[in-house]
Design a protein around this nucleic acid. Sequence first.
DNA 1: TGCCCGATTAACT
DNA 2: GTTAATCGGGCAA
Length: 191
Amino acid sequence: MPKRLTRSFFRRSVHEVAPDLIGATLFVAGVGGRLVEVEAYHHTDPAAHSFRGPTARNSVMFGPPGFAYVYRSYGMHWCLNFVCEPKGSASAVLIRAIEPTAGLAVMRRRRGLADARLLCSGPGRLCEALGVTAAHYGLALDEPPFELFARDGEVEVIAGPRIGITKATDKPWRYGEKGSRFLSKPFTPEA
DNA sequence: TGCCCGATTAACT
DNA sequence: GTTAATCGGGCAA
């Protein structure tokens, strides 16, 4: 039986937590699956929402680790992050893709899609499939409706440049499960 | 107050 | 490969 992840799991460097999340299991109200793609955002990183200091939108990032930071992207999608590092570090991990394992019927209905591969393969897509909205902003990740379990067994983690950003694009802070069919985009093979 | 643009997605050509 | 959809945050004025 996989071990349940508690808040202390997130009290480490975002660059340690992010790869450790690959292969972990996330459920939101019983719907979810295996995390196969995440990105790390440190407060010293120009691409991070917390880079310019606290605002109404990012305030939860400046709080203690183990809580959900949810924001609206492009005026139409929700994106889910896990706050990491000791309180005040304002660093978080963006959840980018999930391999669906539970609640497939619910996800298909919410997404209006049959193909399991496209249900959760992107930050906006997985929030729609899991029903994540502003209502989840600031909620603890070790309490309902969230359930998080550590990865069980071996997982091959690969890193690469982050997606959809214009700053610090050279940093290899996107992490994923090598060869997964559920990534939002494949990892480019190293040169 | 106004303007620009984004940690995206789906539907185009 | 390109682009519309869609709107709040952040910064300039």
